[in-house]
Nucleic acid binder design. Structure first.
Length: 185
DNA sequence: CCGGTGATGCCCT
DNA sequence: GGGCATCACCGGT
């Protein structure tokens, strides 16, 4: 078994943590059942830029982002989907890494999108605010590998579109494909 | 293969 | 009341 990723890993600037999370294992436990998937795509969001939910200040929805690193920020969007983030940096520096895609061992499409992976792993709002450095919460991360990365602009947003804050496992089948991106820029 | 669009509910203005 | 860090489906090519 791999080692669990400690809080110090997440307590750095979000643009350092986001690329480092690609290749790590995400583990979901519900009762006796365990799913282990590998992160293949992430995006960084930080209060200073307009695409971030915390850009206009603290609200009840984004409160977790203002807290300590290593906690889950799960939000509901488009009336039917959840997205899962991990809070980074220090307290009161609102920032988080959006987990955009994960690889399931037997199905390349199951985790190829932020809402799809939440559905496949049964991640919903009840996990908002849990500690992902503690297995007691049923959702944690373990050290994996450092694959070849491609860096591009973020997708699915209308503001802050020029920041190159999306990273994915180069040529991996499970990377989300909503928007076509040119490789190796 | 590709772009357009409807579903659906919560949060913030 | 508008907009949203999405997705699957539809129809034209």
């Amino acid at each position: 078994m791999s080692e669990i990723i400690p809080r110090s890993f997440y307590s750095r600037r979000v643009i350092e943590v986001a690329p480092d999370l690609v290749g790590m294992w995400l583990v979901r436990q519900i009762n006796e059942s365990i799913q282990r998937v590998q992160i293949v795509e992430t995006e960084a969001y930080e209060q200073s830029e307009p695409a971030c939910h915390a850009h206009r200040g603290q609200t009840s929805r984004n409160m977790v982002m203002f807290g300590c690193a290593g906690y889950a920020y799960v939000y509901f969007v488009y009336g039917m989907h959840y997205c899962f983030n991990i809070v980074t940096d220090k307290e009161n520096t609102a920032s988080a890494v959006l987990i955009r895609a994960v690889a399931f061992p037997d199905n390349a499409h199951l985790g190829a999108g932020p809402a799809k992976l939440c559905k496949a792993l049964s991640i919903d709002k009840t996990l908002n605010g849990i500690d992902v450095t503690n297995p007691q919460g049923g959702l944690w991360l373990e050290v994996g590998e450092s694959p070849p990365l491609t860096q591009t602009t973020r997708i699915g947003i209308t503001k802050g579109v020029d920041l190159p804050w999306r990273w994915y496992w180069q040529s991996h089948q499970s990377v989300s494909k909503t928007s076509r991106q040119l490789n190796n820029k």
